[in-house]
Design a protein around this nucleic acid. Structure first.
Lengths: 199, 199
DNA sequence: ACCTGAACACCGTTCAAGT
DNA sequence: ACCTGAACACCGTTCAAGT
């Protein structure tokens, strides 16, 4: 396969995906039709269907294309930092998700789509698995420090995974709450969690 | 308006709503059509449209009908209890949302619908407002106790509202996480939050 | 007043035909 | 190979007509 052709194809897919995201931000998942994306992109129905087998695959591409770089940022932040606390990891994660990321209502709509589209659910589980691994890695030093020398490696691994899932939950809680009730300062949220659930 | 007629009408709406919920639990919001509800209920298209102006109003009715009793339960629990901690309030709230309530994936799908349907969003904001008020009431004694005698009433009210929003966020986080990644024990989640964010 | 179901506008997707 | 757009099956909703 010639390289130029591959690059052209990727560029075309990106062009379509970016047009789709503009529609999604304007009207939400439910109210953007293929016809809207046709108009926004200036292409034709057939052109879109020659690059994506269906609307769900386009959604999957968008999730991968726009979310994975953010996960990479988080992973980088996690691996360069040393013994970050869950609070710091959550703050970092929400920073990644809030400024310039996909808008919160759109993230919630993707969750909902994933409940219904098995392929999208698989794609999300895959990306979320990477995210979970990053979070687990990032939180392990903190867990080890608190557990003391007596703790076995499997115990630390299990506790790290559990804490990572909790951090992911709190991030999801922030996003869902923001989507339904409007914006909230990240620092205020994290402080409030610590304040209400501390000790 | 004669009472029997009103009761008949309410019963009919309930019959339709229950048939709809059976479809929703089986196939999700996106994959249940009016035609499905027609089959499930044994009625006709027109019968449904003579009781609900459209699909969104049916969704709104379902939210009100099935969620409000749960909120009332929570309110009752909050007002009979004295100085519950945020942990206890969150546990109580999740208990209400988990056993026998609407399944988590369905709740997420309703959030997504609300992003797109203004009327449903208004209905959700209204029910969520009541929930927020209940949570605020429930958490106020705890906030007051911690603040000490020096704290002014407006400060306590503001902090109670803030804590209530945080509890709601954590509940949403639990629901979203459960919907995407599968079930998790409520007590384990709450303990893990306290453990990771304590002190 | 409640209900019926054919009809309508619109949706995602396909596919024969063009370049 | 990429693209076109008419055609198709299906969706939510309407409405003239029945009881």
């Amino acid at each position: 396969m010639p390289k130029v052709s591959h690059e052209y194809r990727e560029a075309r897919r990106d062009e379509i995906a970016r047009a789709a995201v503009r529609c999604l931000e304007r009207n939400g998942v439910r109210d953007t039709s293929i016809a809207d994306i046709v108009v926004e992109s200036g292409l034709s129905i057939g052109a879109i269907y020659s690059h994506f087998t269906n609307k769900a695959e386009l959604a999957r591409y968008i999730v991968g294309r726009f979310l994975i770089p953010r996960i990479d940022e988080l992973e980088a932040a996690g691996s360069r930092g040393d013994a970050l606390t869950p609070r710091e990891i959550l703050s970092e994660m929400l920073r990644v998700f809030s400024d310039g990321g996909l808008p919160a209502p759109l993230v919630v709509q993707f969750w909902a789509e994933a409940m219904v589209d098995a392929e999208l659910h698989a794609e999300m589980t895959r990306t979320a698995g990477r995210l979970g691994a990053s979070l687990t890695t990032a939180v392990t030093p903190w867990v080890r420090e608190r557990a003391g020398d007596a703790a076995s490696a499997p115990l630390i691994a299990q506790q790290s995974a559990q804490t990572a899932r909790t951090i992911a939950s709190l991030a999801q809680g922030y996003i869902a709450n923001k989507a339904v009730f409007g914006p909230r300062d990240v620092a205020e949220y994290v402080d409030s969690v610590a304040d209400a659930f501390g000790a």
